[in-house]
Simulated scan of single mutants.
Amino acid sequence: MIRHIVLFKFKDGVSWDDPRAQEAERVAAKVGDEVPELHEWTFGRNISTRPIAHDFAVIGLMDDEEALERYLVHPFHQEAIRLWREISDWVIADLEE
């Protein structure tokens, strides 16, 4: 199993009041329903106020690296990436379980 973790940090001038951030969150919430490779999908706003904290996270669980590759190119996931790319930078980790 592969656990895919992404942490998003808003670019300067972007906050949750921005309609683009709200749309990115709305689409991210649906990724788990739209991408069949995902067995689990967790997402949410970070509640930490520490300066090092990121603003949003997603965590997905899939079978293997082949499933991860299919997830990465899935059209709905690509739409989510497009929205987040406009407003944030992110880091990822893919953990083998």
Rank of each mutant, 00 (worst) to 15 (best):
I5S: 10
I5C: 12
L7F: 15
K9S: 14
K11G: 11
K11E: 11
K11T: 13
G13L: 13
G13P: 10
G13Y: 10
V14S: 10
V14T: 14
V14I: 15
V14Y: 13
S15I: 14
W16G: 05
D17V: 09
D18S: 12
D18T: 04
P19Q: 11
R20I: 05
A21C: 03
A21S: 06
A21G: 01
Q22G: 02
Q22L: 07
E23A: 05
E25T: 01
E25H: 04
R26L: 06
A28F: 08
A29M: 13
K30E: 15
K30F: 07
V31I: 15
V31K: 07
G32R: 05
V35P: 02
P36L: 02
E37F: 02
E40K: 15
W41G: 02
T42R: 14
T42S: 12
F43L: 07
G44N: 10
G44P: 06
G44R: 08
R45H: 00
N46F: 01
S48W: 02
P51G: 06
P51E: 10
P51S: 07
I52M: 09
A53Q: 04
A53T: 03
H54S: 12
A57T: 14
L61A: 08
M62G: 00
D64L: 03
E65H: 05
E65A: 07
E65G: 02
A67W: 02
L68G: 02
E69Q: 04
R70Y: 00
Y71G: 02
Y71K: 01
H74S: 04
H74P: 03
P75K: 08
P75A: 08
F76N: 06
H77T: 05
Q78E: 14
I81Q: 11
I81F: 11
R82S: 10
R82D: 09
R82N: 09
W84D: 06
R85E: 12
R85V: 09
I87C: 08
I87E: 09
I87Y: 06
I87V: 10
S88W: 03
D89E: 15
D89P: 00
D89Y: 06
W90K: 12
W90C: 11
I92M: 12
I92Y: 14
A93R: 11
A93K: 10
A93T: 11
D94N: 04
L95A: 07
L95W: 06
L95S: 04
L95C: 07
E97L: 14
